[in-house]
Amino acid sequence: MSTPTFQLFVAGDSARSRAAEANFRRLAAERLQDRYELLVVDVMQDPDRAEEHRILTTPTLIKTTPTPMRRVTGDFGDFDTVMLALAINPSIRR
């Protein structure tokens, strides 16, 4: 199975942006054995990419692979709900 890929859209270098990225990396370390790829996109710097992915709220995390593509918004403090929203089943992972 390929490495899960994520895109994290944040708005500027705010406390909320940093919290979201930190929370996600912690979640990935705990639940994905750090096997993941993450691209952080600042919507202020790259609004065209935000347009392309139709980002409304920030922070928004998109799981691009494996399918199905899923997204979740917030600062991701609650790992269980994030896992659920991203449709990553902990029992399948190796």
């Binding site: 859209f9 944040v10 708005a11 500027g12 909320r16 919290a19 979201a20 929370n23 919507v43 202020m44 609004p47 065209d48 935000a50 347009e51 139709r54 980002i55 409304l56 709220t57 920030t58 922070p59 928004t60 997204r71 979740v72 918004t73 917030g74 600062d75 991701f76 403090g77 609650d78 709900t81 994030v82 929203a85």
Partner: peptide
């Protein structure tokens, strides 16, 4: 609205995406 429906919310967020897209346009 797209086929996925509203994005699930986990924690604090804002409308930064919309803001960036509108000002960019």
């Amino acid at each position: 609205p797209d086929a996925h429906g509203p994005t699930p919310i986990v924690g604090q967020f804002d409308l930064g995406g919309l803001m960036a897209r509108v000002t960019n346009a």
